[in-house]
Computed example of a mutant assay.
Amino acid sequence: MTRVFGEVAAIYDEARQGYPDDLLAAVTGYHGGVPASVADVGAGTGKGTGLLLRLGVPVTAVEPDPRMAAVLTRKFPQVEVANAAFEDWTPPPGGVGLLACATAWHWMDERTRERRARTALVPRGTLAVFHNSHGYAVPRQKDAIDAIHQAIDPTPTVDDREVAWARGGIERSGLFADVEVHEWHRHPVLTTEQYLRLLQTFSTFRNHSARDRKTVVANLSAAIDGFGGAVEMDIHTVLVLARAA
């Protein structure tokens, strides 16, 4: 599953939202300044990497899918890219000051991810786990889109995990201290075409059969056109910060 997005790497890079500028300020404020080095694990096409580069320090991007990594390299040739899974990556000697993971923590081995993160960090280094959730700002649009998805798959489209779900595992590990949570909401308006391109980057959609994907696309296209050709999103960004104990 960690490589499912490589099939649509270019679309993923174009269609997925980045992260708010305030996230970087929250990280540096928590860290007490700019870390000396950064590792971005599960970096994908670099949606989080671009923000982290603004720190002005060396960034290593760790990404298992070569197709995703290739897009990242074209965009950010100054970044050292390790084409490996987090579980197979060897951190630099002494560790990094900041280990970041953008919308990929759930793909990491939940039995070992906190331990691996702690091993990769310098003493008192910062772990920053953040993700975007894709919701809908207008209730009638949300209801219509959910109904179309559930006609194919009755599994609820809403993520029922707690907002800061990563916090639990980090705290239970006993490897980190001073855990904080920050949240932001943004409301971009997407055209029918933009939304359908975004849809192609969702793993739940990609796991459907070709026939079901075609049905969903047709029904969503008609529904969004019925809204005037646009849907207002609610992009909810959650950042969990922790300090290596």
Results as ranks from 00 to 15, higher is better:
G50V: 05
M1S: 08
S173D: 03
A39S: 00
R111W: 10
A85N: 12
A70N: 02
V62P: 00
F5E: 04
L198S: 03
G18H: 06
L121F: 12
K75Y: 09
V34P: 14
R140K: 14
A25C: 00
N83S: 12
A222W: 13
T103Q: 06
R113N: 04
T90S: 15
Q150F: 05
G229W: 12
H149L: 02
V181E: 13
E14K: 13
H31R: 14
E162S: 15
C101A: 00
H131T: 12
M1W: 14
P91T: 06
P139Y: 11
V138I: 06
E7Q: 13
V57Y: 14
D160H: 15
A151D: 10
P123D: 10
V189Y: 07
A210P: 01
G169D: 11
Q78S: 08
F205G: 07
R115I: 05
R116K: 13
T201F: 11
T126P: 00
A100I: 01
P123N: 10
L239V: 04
E183L: 08
K47V: 04
D225E: 09
Q17F: 15
F86V: 00
R118T: 05
A137Y: 02
A69S: 02
E183A: 09
P93L: 07
Q141K: 06
T204M: 15
R161K: 04
D153C: 01
T90Y: 15
H187V: 06
E193F: 07
Q200S: 11
A120T: 05
A128P: 08
L53Q: 03
A15E: 03
G18L: 06
E110H: 15
P66L: 09
L175S: 02
G135I: 00
G169Q: 00
L72N: 01
G168D: 14
L199N: 03
N132S: 06
C101K: 03
F205K: 09
A230S: 03
L239S: 04
V216F: 05
G29R: 09
M68K: 07
R115Q: 15
A26M: 12
V79K: 10
T45R: 07
S173L: 03
F176E: 02
D234V: 11
V179E: 09
R186N: 05
D225I: 05
N207E: 15
I170F: 08
A166D: 07
H208G: 10
E171W: 04
E180I: 12
G94V: 12
H208C: 13
A222L: 06
R116H: 10
A151I: 03
M1T: 06
E232I: 09
V181I: 09
G174H: 04
V8L: 06
V122H: 08
L52N: 00
L220I: 11
M108H: 05
Y19D: 07
A70T: 01
A164T: 03
S133M: 11
G48T: 07
T126K: 05
E114D: 11
R211W: 14
I235Q: 13
R197L: 10
